[in-house]
Computed example of a mutant assay.
Amino acid sequence: MPAAQLPVDHACLIVHGTDSPGIVAAVSALITRQGANIVQFDQYSDNPAGGAYFQRVVFHRPGLREAMPAIEVDLDRTLGTGFDLDWSITDQSTPKRMAILASKQDHCLLDLLWRHRRGELPVEIPVVISNHTDAEADVAGFGIPFVHVPSVPGPDKSASEARILEVLADADVDVVVLARYMQILSADFLERVRVPVINIHHSFLPAFIGAQPYRQAKTRGVKLIGATSHYVTTDLDEGPIIEQDIVRVTHADTAFDLERRGADVERAVLSRAVLWHAQDRVIRHGNHTIVF
């Protein structure tokens, strides 16, 4: 995303933990004390009497980068005393570095690259990795490095996963997006990658988990199909959901029609999930997400 379109001197503060009186007052006073001004404020509590509490605050502070160490010390002191809270803070002028893993189907991949080129996604894309070369020329047209890592036949994917991890480490990524990658990542990979992994699944989860969901949907005779973007965990297609959407279908639609119409939903759902993650709008809480 062009640097001019990123919010300069804006920070995003995420606070979550146990709800208790005084959190809003303490955070607001801290931001004021640090010479900053709140421009966005969202909060949610599932039970005000000691339940789980979530807060997202965007504030403007001239000279933010220079002031950030002092702000972090103040946060540690303020929220670490008298509150059972965790916090994180990011400089909104620094885009997240997002690697994309793709396979033969390119609709989600090309949509993300197109939105990135238009300045709609506040990320950098240092690399696209694919187990096929079908999209190599298209990716090159966007000026983004393409790395081919062929899939290894058989159940043992450790060699190809090791190569992917090398590429991701060299690219210094903050998040990995599976744009219809169509490969199941091992528990070892997910542990070693050490960054969030976002997937797009071509059904409205929890319906039709696994392979060929459009064929499953046609066989079941559903009247709605959808797509789900979620964080990847070791449980197949059961990670915390970020975004979902649907489209109505009829008995006359073939499995191919469902796939064609579903592709539009997949693109929209994945792009929204990526945008919200890039803007620090998503807080994970167990197998759920809070999206501000």
Results as ranks from 00 to 15, higher is better:
77 R>Q: 05
77 R>V: 05
79 L>P: 03
81 T>N: 08
81 T>V: 09
82 G>V: 06
84 D>H: 00
86 D>A: 13
91 D>Y: 14
94 T>F: 10
95 P>Q: 10
95 P>F: 08
99 A>T: 11
102 A>E: 11
103 S>N: 14
104 K>Y: 11
105 Q>H: 15
105 Q>I: 15
106 D>K: 09
108 C>V: 08
109 L>T: 09
111 D>T: 12
111 D>K: 10
113 L>Y: 04
113 L>G: 00
113 L>C: 03
114 W>T: 08
118 R>W: 04
123 V>K: 04
125 I>Y: 03
126 P>M: 03
129 I>A: 10
131 N>E: 12
132 H>Y: 14
133 T>M: 13
134 D>T: 14
134 D>E: 14
141 G>A: 08
141 G>W: 14
144 I>Q: 10
144 I>G: 07
147 V>D: 08
148 H>E: 08
149 V>F: 08
151 S>H: 11
153 P>I: 11
154 G>Q: 11
156 D>G: 02
156 D>V: 07
156 D>P: 02
158 S>G: 01
160 S>Y: 03
163 R>N: 01
163 R>D: 09
165 L>H: 10
165 L>Q: 13
165 L>F: 14
165 L>A: 15
166 E>H: 09
169 A>G: 10
170 D>I: 03
171 A>S: 06
172 D>V: 14
172 D>P: 00
173 V>A: 02
175 V>P: 03
176 V>T: 05
178 L>P: 00
178 L>F: 02
179 A>F: 04
183 Q>V: 10
183 Q>I: 09
183 Q>T: 10
184 I>W: 07
185 L>R: 06
185 L>S: 04
185 L>D: 08
188 D>Y: 03
